[in-house]
Design a protein around this nucleic acid. Sequence first.
DNA 1: CCGACTTTGTGCATGCGTTCACAAGCGGTA
DNA 2: TACCGCTTGTGAACGCATGCACAAAGTCGG
Lengths: 256, 256
Amino acid sequence: MASQRGEGETTTTPLEPADRERARAIPEAAVARLAVYLRVLSGMADQGVTAVSSEELSQAAGVNAAKLRKDLSYIGSYGTRGVGYDVEVLVSHIERILGLTRNHSVAVVGIGNLGHALANYGGFPGRGFPVTALFDVDPDLIGVPVGGIPVSHIDDITAVCLEREVSIGVIATPPPAAQSVCDRLVSAGVQCILNFAPVVLQVPDNVEVRKVDLAVEMQILSFHVARRADEAVHNSGGGVSVGNNGLGVDGMVIRP
Amino acid sequence: MASQRGEGETTTTPLEPADRERARAIPEAAVARLAVYLRVLSGMADQGVTAVSSEELSQAAGVNAAKLRKDLSYIGSYGTRGVGYDVEVLVSHIERILGLTRNHSVAVVGIGNLGHALANYGGFPGRGFPVTALFDVDPDLIGVPVGGIPVSHIDDITAVCLEREVSIGVIATPPPAAQSVCDRLVSAGVQCILNFAPVVLQVPDNVEVRKVDLAVEMQILSFHVARRADEAVHNSGGGVSVGNNGLGVDGMVIRP
DNA sequence: CCGACTTTGTGCATGCGTTCACAAGCGGTA
DNA sequence: TACCGCTTGTGAACGCATGCACAAAGTCGG
């Protein structure tokens, strides 16, 4: 499939055979955590930390130390027993496994409030996810630059996506438009979709979809509120202490 | 703990003892899916559908029919064998289990691009999650109404949250401010936090945190791109067909 | 009233992910 | 070189979630 898009492999570092078998076997849940480890490690590297133990890293990432070691073992044995891990080495190996050695061009569809936020979000370009295309149907928006990129009309999606080698499509449209947009992205050869619309997308097997559903997140929180309130009422009716955990309350807040 | 906040239970429907034991036993994964079922069912109800079978509902929700029935069985037996489920009945029971019979007041901290998007997002108020407070540090923003609500200063967070009975705090600040904001929310008695900042928050045990991490989502997609590209290269180098799944490509796109 | 058909609810087996516990391996030290 | 302490890497046990397959329970037609 990559071969369809001209010189797709220019910047890709091919995986070694041993890595390929490993990559196939990495549990989905572990992949998500590896991304978290990567961020923590990058932060450490920026602060000049060169070595780290599984215990330290696991605490910073908010997970069990044993789980962290198992997760890292999925990508190989790059630690030194009795010492720990070299931060730089770990960073580069996780980046390689996650496919971050290649840039992944991102297209955002639906330039409303959320689309604006995504287009302006600084976190993507710096980490290998440059936003290269924006789409909408509103005539007033077409051609207007948002975050430095002019908005294209949704009807040009196939041509633009192919031209700019878009590999990830982000759907930030209202729910009724989501499936249609999804179909167009798939037609344009996009195989990875991040969906913010509260809709269950139907896609072919060869397309990977990830969903971010704010309402669902809220409702899960709501469930826990209800469960706790109920437990509290039935257990003793007493007031549960609410105080903080001793962490300092000092910081400033800066607008994104 | 609810008893601490005056007349907290005014609109709450207390759970029956049988439901309480059930609620305790519902797997986390099932809770997330129940929220999805609820949305699908609500959409059906709006279109006048009154009854639905597990097969239909599961397809619309994108899950296995058996799994759907098991999920529903966690909240009770409200179907009719040989017929299916009554949409209204199912909606009301899921809402009750998820704690949606009570309104959950939401506070958004960090009124940048994302904060604006959240404050204006129409999906919350309609479904029992009214945004009642906004916070930032930027003097130019304080007092300015966003989505109909004036922005308060972060220093007033405790008073405002208590006054408006905020039960869910949303963190949409830059990473460096997230932990500090989190601590303040916790001090203000907020026990549920939805975190958009790419930071691992440290909280006491009695606080529930859910994380939405765009960079992590992107990197998971990147992993799958890399894995597939690699498989394709090593399997045969051939081009995988990309065509759509026969779904119509007809819709319009409207800006949120 | 009865029998055939449909669909739910669930016991059970399977597979995946997490956790434990410990052997293997490395650096430091005498 | 031989020993000691520390940390990694992983085999194995455990627990949770998923999917299957079927009994239970209801409707509908005659």
